[in-house]
Nucleic acid binder design. Sequence first.
DNA 1: AATGTGACCGCGA
DNA 2: TTCGCGGCCACAT
Length: 117
Amino acid sequence: MSRSSRDTPVGGAGRDALYQRFYALIDCIPRGRVATYGQIAREAGRPRHARHVGYALRALPPGSKLPWYRVINSRGEISARPSEGYPLQRERLLAEGIVLDRRGRVDLERFGWVPDL
DNA sequence: AATGTGACCGCGA
DNA sequence: TTCGCGGCCACAT
């Protein structure tokens, strides 16, 4: 491993490869659990690049099989805009047994995804 | 090239 | 707990 320890190369392909990595990670989120944008970015070896996770998801085609709805922000809230996928996302989460409190927030302590290696 | 925006995050007040 | 700010970086104009 003669690689610099401060970061993980994306592989040379750049942005596209990074997005693919985000997608792969999101695809691993089990049913009934949620992950945060920051968490996905971190798992992908790009801490503090949470915004790009949202970017990648925004670029996702409608009808994608990816469980994008299991990705929420660090406060446990749905970040998608009401005019975008908010209603659908809320519905999907509820359908999996995830509880949203009165303010529409998910208890990350309880439903947060803990990736096991 | 420069500027503004964004499905975000974390910290300090 | 909420609110404000700076940081991050790709993308649209």
